[in-house]
Design a protein around this nucleic acid. Structure first.
Ligand code: FES
Ligand code: FES
Lengths: 151, 151
DNA sequence: TAAATATACTACTATTTTAATAGGATATAA
DNA sequence: TTATATCCTATTAAAATAGTAGTATATTTA
C-alpha cells in the first residue's frame, strides 16, 4: 500500500492539471476543499512536492500552486516516489526504499526476490506510462460511459 | 509493501515444501534457525497459517508442521492473503482490505481507481500463478546459472 | 501603507500498525 | 516420567503514518 500522502498528492496534482493553462494556480484551501484533503496535511504535502521540483508556488494574496511541467509529462510513478510511497512489495526489490534481506544469503539466488522483481516491473510499467493527463482523460471516458449506460 | 509476517510465511512454507514427501514435518525451531526468522514470531505465523488451513501440525516430541497441499497448489497470493498482506496499492482496489474512498464521490468514475485496479490485476496475475514449487524451481535455475557464469 | 490573504517552515502530538516476546497449558514420543 | 513440541492468550516495544499548531514571511489589493 502507498501512504495516503501519495494518494492525496495525486489528487491535488490532478486538480492542478485540470487548470493547467498559462500557469494558472490554485490555493491550498481551494484544493483541500475540492478534494476533501485535510488542509494542513495538504500544505505539508505540497511543500514537499515543491522542494522536489514537481510544482511551483506563489506567495501572498491570490497566490497558490501550479504545475511546473505539462500534465502529459507528470507520471504517477514520479508522484508516488516524490511523496515517499513504495511501489515494490518487499524492500529488497525496491528502487527507492531498498534494504538488504538479512535472511537471504544471496539476493541473486533468491527465487522470491526474482518473482517480486517481476511484480515490481509490472506495476512500474503501468504507473510510469500513466500521466496526470491520462488520468483526466480516463475520467472523461468513464463519465461518458456511465452517461451512455444510463440511457 | 507486504508485512514481514507475509515474507516470513513464504520462507517458512518454502522450507516445508522442500521436505514435502509423505508428510514430512519440520519443527518451528528448525525452520526459525534455517530461515533466520525470530522463533516466537514464526510460531505465531504458523499458528495462523494452520488456522487458515494452509498447514497442519503434530503436537508433542518430534512433532512439527507440514503442508496440507502439494507445493504445486500453494500460490504466493494465497499465502500473502492468509497472513494479512495487502497486494493492492490503495484500499479501494483491494480485494481483502477494501475500504471506500471517502474523497472520491463515485468509485466507478475515478481514473485513479481504474489505474490502480490495473496495477493490482498485474500483480495478482504473477503472484497467483507462482507456487511454492515454482519458487524452488526458480532457485535451482538461478543456482545453475550462477555456477555457469563462474566458469 | 495597512489589512487581508497566502505560502514557508519547524516542531509537535496522536493514532495505528507491525514486530516481537513472555509464559503457562497441553499433547506426544521415547 | 522426562524431554520435546505445539497451543494459546496477553503484553510490550518500536516504527510508521496522519494530522495539527503556530509563527514568520511574502504579496496583493484597497
Ligand atoms: S533476497 Fe529478498 S527475499 Fe530473498
Ligand atoms: S475511488 Fe479510490 S481513488 Fe478514487
Amino acid at each position: 500500500m502507498i501512504p495516503k500522502r501519495s494518494k492525496y498528492a495525486i489528487k491535488a496534482l490532478t486538480a492542478l492539471a485540470k487548470v493547467y493553462r498559462d500557469k494558472q494556480h490554485l490555493s491550498i484551501a481551494t484544493i483541500a476543499e475540492q478534494e476533501k484533503i485535510p488542509r494542513k496535511f495538504l500544505e505539508a504535502i505540497l511543500l514537499q512536492l515543491r522542494n522536489e521540483g514537481m510544482v511551483n508556488s506563489k506567495m501572498g494574496a491570490s497566490g497558490g500552486y501550479y504545475l511546473v511541467k505539462h500534465p502529459d509529462e507528470i507520471m504517477l510513478s514520479a508522484i508516488i516516489r516524490s511523496t515517499g510511497g513504495p511501489i515494490a512489495l518487499i524492500p529488497c526489490v525496491s528502487l527507492n526504499f531498498y534494504e538488504e534481506c538479512v535472511e537471504c544469503p544471496h539476493e541473486e539466488l533468491c527465487g522470491l526476490h526474482e518473482v517480486m522483481l517481476e511484480v515490481r516491473e509490472a506495476s512500474i510499467h503501468i504507473l510510469s506510462k500513466t500521466s496526470l493527463a491520462d488520468l483526466i482523460l480516463r475520467e472523461k471516458k468513464l463519465f461518458r460511459k456511465s452517461e451512455n449506460s444510463r440511457k
